[in-house]
Amino acid sequence: MTLTQVAREAGVSVSTVSRYLRGQLKVQDKTAQRIDNAVRTTGYRVDRGARRDGFIAMVVAELTNPFYASLAEECSTLAAEAGYSLLIAASGRQHARENALSAQLSSTDSIAGLIFAGMHRTNPELERAIAGGLPVVVIDEEVDLSPSTAVSTVTVDNYGGAYQATSYLATLGHRRIAHVGGPPGLLTSEDRLRGYRDALAAHGLAADETLVLRGPYTEEYGASVVPYLTRVEAPTAVFVGSDIVAVGLLSGAELQGLRIPEDLSVVGCDGIQLGQWLRPRLTTLAQPVRALAHAALEALGRVIDSPGETTRQVLPLQLVVRGSAVAPRTTPEA
C-alpha cells in the first residue's frame, strides 16, 4: 500500500501524511485521527526504523548557467556535510516544468525538504506543497504566494548591487551607460533595473530608455545585443544583469570589431568563475554563492525542525573590479 492511498483515504495531501508519520508535522487532532484510521484501513506499514529523512531536493532553473551549477554544487557539498543526500532537478527555465517538479517532489515520501531556485514568479504547485506541510526554502528568485502562505527566503540585494555597479561606471567618467537586463517580470531583473536607474539619477545622468535592453539570461542574447550598442550615440559602458549574458556580449563584440574595454566598458553580475578567465577579465557583481547555500540549508533545517517558522535573509553582492571596465577615452559633457 502506498502513501497516496493513505492520503486519499484520509482526505489530505501525500506530503501531509508523509511528514505526520515521520513526526515532522503537527496536525489537528481530527486530522491525525483520520490519518491513523487510514493507515489501519489500508494496511500501510510505517517503517519507523528507516532513515526516510535523509534526502532533500533542489530545483534550479538550469544547470548550463554556471551560477546555478555552482549554487547546486555548494548546496550538495554542504548537505553532505550535514548528513543529507541532495537530489537536484533542473526545470530548463520552463514554467510548466517548475510546477510539475514541485508537485512530484511534494508527493515523494523520501523527501524531507525542498530548496527552490526557479525563474518564475508564480507556482501554484509549490504553494500547495508548502500548504501541505513540505518544508521549503526559496532562494535567489522570489515566488509570489497568497498572503496566507509563508515561506522562508534567501536572496541577495539586487537593487543595491546594481546601484553600486552603475555608480562605479559613472565614477569612472562614463555618461552614456546602457543596461542589458533579464526577462521582464522577474524580481531580480526589476530590482537591478531600478538600481541602475536610481544610480544614474544620483549622478545627474539622464535615463535613456533606448539604452535599456531586456532578454533571457543566455550567451546568445548577449551576443545579439551588440549591434544595438554600436549605433550613433552609442554608450561607452554597459551594466549587464548576468555574467553569462556578458560572456556572449564579449564574444559578439569581438566579431563586430568592438574593443572591450577601449570602446565599451562592461560590468556583469553573478561572479561566475569563467569571468576571471575571459580576456579582458570581467568586472562583476559577485554572488555570495557559498553563503547563499549555507543560509538556505540552515533555513531549511529550521523549517524542518519547527514547521510554520519562516525567515527572510538578504545577502550583499560584492563588486569585483577587473579589466573589462575602465575610464572612457574621452569624457563627454554630462
Results as ranks from 00 to 15, higher is better:
M1I: 11
R8T: 13
A10N: 09
G11R: 11
V12A: 09
V14D: 07
V14P: 04
V17M: 08
S18D: 11
R19A: 02
Y20C: 05
Y20A: 04
R22F: 02
L25R: 14
K26P: 03
K26I: 05
K30E: 15
Q33P: 02
R34D: 08
N37F: 01
T41M: 08
V46H: 14
G49C: 06
R51H: 13
I56R: 00
M58A: 14
V59Y: 02
E62M: 01
A69M: 13
A72V: 05
E73M: 10
L78G: 05
A80Q: 15
S85N: 14
A90Q: 14
H95K: 13
S102C: 07
A103F: 07
S107H: 05
T108H: 07
D109R: 04
D109C: 00
S110N: 10
S110I: 05
F116I: 05
E125K: 13
E127T: 11
I130N: 07
V136K: 08
V143G: 01
S148H: 13
T149G: 06
A150P: 01
S152M: 03
T153H: 06
T153C: 09
N158L: 03
Y159F: 15
G160V: 10
G160H: 07
A165W: 00
L169V: 04
R176S: 15
V180N: 05
G181T: 11
G182K: 00
P184F: 05
L186C: 07
S189Q: 03
R192G: 06
L193I: 03
Y196A: 02
A199F: 00
L200E: 01
H203E: 07
E209D: 07
T210I: 03
T210D: 07
L211W: 04
G215D: 03
V225F: 12
R231D: 05
R231W: 04
V232G: 04
A237C: 12
V240H: 03
V240D: 04
A246W: 01
G257S: 12
D263S: 10
S265C: 09
V267Q: 03
I272E: 00
L274R: 07
Q276P: 00
Q276N: 09
L285S: 11
A286H: 02
P288N: 12
A299M: 11
G301V: 10
S306K: 15
V314L: 14
V314A: 13
V314H: 09
V314T: 15
S324N: 11
S324R: 04
V326E: 06
T330S: 15
